[in-house]
Write a protein that binds this DNA or RNA. Structure first.
Length: 469
DNA sequence: CTATGGCACGGATT
DNA sequence: AATCCGTGCCATAG
C-alpha cells in the first residue's frame, strides 16, 4: 500500500509514520462506532496493557476532565463555527439533565420523528421486551420505501430467536400506522392494506383478484384483457383500478412520510450527532463524534510501571511488546477520532443550512474537494464517511454520505414543484421549471428522480387523493 | 404524436 | 479499477 495513504494523512505530519500505523488507522476509520466497540474489546482481550478509562483528556486543552465537552474549552472555542468534539457514546453533553430535557421536551415533539420511531411507538406497548428487540432490528433495516431489506430468517438467526417470533413481529408492524410497512415488496404491502380494508368491510369485491391475478395487466393498464377474463365490463375494471389507486399505497413510507428517501430511520444509532446549542439556540452547533461507548482507551499505567521492574529479560521483552502494541493502538485510535472530527467539522461548517433546513439547502460537494482542503487523501474521506450515519437536530438520522449526494437538492426541488403543481406536469415541464430554480437537467433525469421519490408519472397523477384511513 | 421507461454509454467519482 | 450518475436513443403505450 504505497502512497494511497502514505504521507498524506496529516499535512503537518512531521515524520514518516510506520506503514502498519497508517493501515491500522485506516481500518479503524472505516468502522462505525458500533463496530468499534467490538474491535476494541478484541484488542483489549488480547492485550493486557490496554485498558478502558472513565476519565478522558480534553484534546484541546489537554487537561483531564470528567466528560466532554471540556467546559473551559467550549466557551473559548471559535464562536462562529460548530463546536466539534469526540466522546464515548454513553456520555452526553456536559450536563446530562439539560441534555435529556432538551431531547424529550423540545426537539422530539416538535420535529417529525423517523418512520421507525413512529412505528415502534405503536407496537412497543403490546409486545414483550424480546419481541421489542426484534422490532427494533426490523425497523432499523427498512429501505427508503419502507420495505424489509433482510429476509426474516436472517434477522432470526442473527438475533437468535425463533423465526415464528420474527414473523409475528413483522405482521404486527405491518398492521401499524403506515400500513404495510416492513413488507418485503409492493405486492405484499398492497395485500396487507387490502386485508385491513376488508376487515373494515370497505373493500371492493374484485380488488383482491385484480391484485393477485392481474397485477401485470394493472400495471400496463390493460383493462380490456382483464375485463374479458373476468367476464365483466371494462368500465367495472376501471372502477376497481381507481379504487385501488385511491385507497392503497404501494410504498408505505409515502403515505405519511413525504420526506426524502433518506428520512426513514434506517440507521438508529448514529456515529455523529449534531444538536443545536443547548446553551444558546443561536449559538454554534454542537457536534458530537461518537467513539467507543465504554470510555477512553489508554495504556494501562500500572502495567507500564510494572514492566520497568521486571528482572527476567524474556518476560520483560514480552511485556514490552504488549506495551508497544498498546501505545500504537491508542495512537491509531486517537488519530482515527481526530480524522473523524476534522472531517465532520468541515462538513458541518459548510452545510449549516442543510442541517437546520431542508434537503434543498444541501450544497453539493465531493469527497475529493474535502480531501484537498483537509490535506487528506480522498480514500481517507471515503473510509471515514462510508457506512456512517449522522443525526441532525431535527431528529433525522441520515447516512453521512448524504452530504456528498449530487442530486439531493434537485430531487427536493422536483418534489416541491410536483407538490405545488396545479395540473399534473409532465417530466419535461418539470425540467423546464427546474431551470428557474437554477438547475438544468435533462427530461430523462427528471423521470429518474421522480421515480426515486416514488412519485407516479404525470398521466397517473391527475388527481391523487389522500389515502382513506 | 407525446410521455415515459429501459438499456446502455461515457464521464465523473470513489 | 470499480461504481455511480446523468443522459441520449429507442420502443411502447396512450
Amino acid at each position: 500500500m504505497p502512497n494511497i495513504i502514505a504521507g498524506q494523512f496529516h499535512s503537518t505530519s512531521q515524520r514518516q509514520l510506520p506503514a502498519a500505523h497508517l493501515t491500522r488507522t485506516m481500518q479503524l476509520l472505516e468502522k462505525t462506532c458500533n463496530e468499534l466497540d467490538t474491535e476494541l474489546e478484541n484488542e483489549i482481550n488480547q492485550n493486557p496493557a490496554l485498558e478502558m478509562s472513565e476519565e478522558c483528556r480534553c484534546p484541546d486543552c489537554k487537561k483531564i476532565i470528567p466528560s466532554y465537552p471540556c467546559q473551559s474549552c467550549m466557551t473559548r472555542l471559535n464562536p462562529s463555527g460548530p463546536i466539534v468534539y469526540v466522546a464515548p457514546r454513553s456520555r452526553g453533553s456536559s450536563s446530562p439533565e439539560e441534555y435529556d430535557e432538551y431531547y424529550s421536551n423540545d426537539n422530539r415533539l416538535r420535529d417529525p420523528e423517523t418512520l421507525s420511531e413512529h412505528v415502534l411507538k405503536q407496537v412497543a406497548p403490546s409486545i414483550s421486551p424480546k419481541e421489542r428487540l426484534v422490532a427494533e432490528h426490523l425497523l432499523a433495516r427498512l429501505d427508503e420505501h419502507g420495505f424489509l431489506i433482510d429476509h426474516p430468517a436472517e434477522i432470526a438467526s442473527y438475533l437468535k430467536v425463533r423465526l415464528t417470533i420474527v414473523e409475528k413481529v413483522i405482521s404486527l408492524i405491518q398492521r401499524a400506522d403506515p400500513i404495510g410497512v416492513a413488507s418485503k415488496n409492493v405486492m405484499e404491502c398492497l395485500m396487507i392494506q387490502l386485508e385491513m380494508l376488508e376487515e373494515d368491510g370497505k373493500s371492493h369485491p374484485l380488488a383482491r383478484k385484480m391484485l393477485t391475478d392481474f397485477w401485470e395487466h394493472l400495471g400496463r393498464r390493460d383493462f380490456q384483457t382483464v375485463a374479458k377474463k373476468c367476464k365483466t365490463s371494462v368500465d367495472a375494471i376501471t372502477k376497481v383500478a381507481q379504487f385501488i389507486k385511491r385507497n392503497l399505497t404501494p410504498y408505505p413510507s409515502q403515505s405519511h412520510w413525504n420526506n426524502s428517501a433518506s428520512a426513514t430511520g434506517r440507521y438508529y444509532r448514529p456515529d455523529v450527532e449534531v444538536i443545536k446549542n443547548p446553551y444558546d439556540e443561536d449559538g454554534p452547533l454542537m457536534v458530537q463524534v461518537f467513539s467507543a461507548s465504554k470510555g477512553w482507551l489508554k495504556v494501562n499505567s500500572t502495567v507500564r510501571t510494572m514492566v520497568s521492574k521486571i528482572e527476567d529479560p524474556e518476560k520483560k521483552d514480552e511485556w514490552s511488546a504488549y506495551l508497544e502494541r498498546a501505545a500504537l493502538f491508542v495512537k491509531c485510535m486517537r488519530q482515527r477520532d481526530n480524522a473523524m472530527k476534522r472531517i465532520v467539522k468541515l462538513i458541518v461548517e459548510r452545510q449549516p443550512k442543510f442541517i437546520l433546513g431542508n434537503d434543498k439547502d444541501l450544497i453539493p460537494m465531493t469527497r475529493a474537494q474535502l480531501a484537498i482542503e483537509l490535506s487528506l487523501h480522498e480514500s481517507t474521506i471515503s473510509r471515514a464517511v462510508a457506512n456512517k450515519t449522522i443525526s441532525l437536530p431535527n431528529g433525522r438520522i441520515i447516512p453521512l454520505s448524504t452530504f456528498f449526494d449530487r442530486s439531493l437538492a434537485i430531487r427536493a426541488a422536483v418534489r416541491k414543484i410536483i407538490e405545488e403543481e396545479k395540473t399534473a406536469m409532465t417530466d419535461e415541464q418539470v425540467a423546464n421549471k427546474l431551470v428557474d430554480h437554477g438547475y438544468k437537467v435533462a427530461r430523462r433525469t427528471v423521470a429518474k428522480y421522480r421515480s426515486m421519490l416514488g412519485i407516479l408519472p404525470a398521466n397517473l397523477r391527475a388527481r391523487q387523493l389522500p389515502r382513506a384511513v
